[in-house]
């Protein structure tokens, strides 16, 4: 068992709001420079660049989890993390069936680029990825979990697109196994501010990087046997000597 420094929330050029420098080889280089062991690729309602980042990290010590930052029907952002590209693709198909059929307005929102491991252009995603799907929060968590993934409501303290901003209170029956607080907030501060948060709800942080310098600026240290979803899930419960802590 060892400590894995993990940044489980970052964007690539597939997110219209990300900088054009968020290319697989550069993301991997900066992540390694920052001493990260694990990153998750979490574009808005999209997973298509996860494979390129995984390939870009091949042969390096960096482990890349395919993921997504889903926006639910309520307009709550949720990190959806998986072990394999197959799981991510299955989840993507479910999300695509619940995404409004709107075209991306490149002038207004920016381009959504699918790239290869070298960062070279493959295609432009024409569908509007930013914005809410029609998937309710509870259903999103259940569907991600059913596919072997881990669902973590993102930046819960944010007024817009954060669970507590949108829904006011932590829903008492929510099956989320952890929550992410914004980079500018310590988990201890979040517990002070939101005293109604369940005491046993694990809180993590991640960078939500939209530009290279943001990568790893905040992170979570997991003590694990291996960088897998199953191990991270156990670490969130502090099971068997595993742990999750924000340094």
């Amino acid at each position: 068992m060892r400590v894995y420094r993990a940044d489980l929330h970052l964007h690539t050029v597939l997110s219209a709001c990300a900088e054009v420098e968020m290319l697989p080889p550069l993301i991997v280089t900066v992540a390694l420079q920052r001493g990260l062991d694990v990153i998750a690729v979490t574009d808005h309602n999209a997973t298509a660049n996860a494979q390129a980042v995984i390939e870009a990290a091949a042969g390096t010590p960096l482990h890349v989890l395919p993921g997504m930052e889903l926006q639910t029907r309520e307009e709550v952002d949720v990190l959806c993390l998986f072990d394999t590209l197959e799981q991510a693709a299955d989840w993507q198909a479910f999300v695509d069936a619940h995404l409004p059929a709107l075209a991306n307005d490149v002038e207004r929102f920016g381009p959504q680029y699918i790239v290869d491991a070298a960062g070279d252009f493959v295609a432009e995603d024409p569908h509007l990825r930013q914005g809410p799907t029609t998937i309710p929060l509870e259903a999103a968590i259940a569907e991600v979990t059913r596919r072997g993934g881990l669902a973590i409501p993102a930046h819960i303290d944010r007024r817009v697109k954060g669970l507590l901003g949108v829904l006011g209170l932590w829903p008492p029956d929510l099956q989320a196994e952890a929550a992410e607080v914004s980079p500018n907030l310590r988990p201890s501060q979040a517990r002070q501010r939101y005293r109604f948060l369940p005491a046993d709800l694990p809180l993590i942080t991640a960078s939500d990087a939209h530009f290279l310098d943001g990568i790893g600026q905040v992170l979570t240290e997991f003590t694990l046997n291996a960088p897998t979803i199953a191990e991270i899930r156990l670490a969130l419960r502090s099971a068997g000597g595993r742990s999750a802590r924000v340094p």
């Binding site: 007024r159 817009v160 507590l164 901003g165 949108v166 829904l167 006011g168 209170l169």
Partner: peptide
């Protein structure tokens, strides 16, 4: 309002 934090 739709943001429940605002409503509260």
């Amino acid at each position: 309002a739709d943001l429940l934090s605002c409503v509260m």
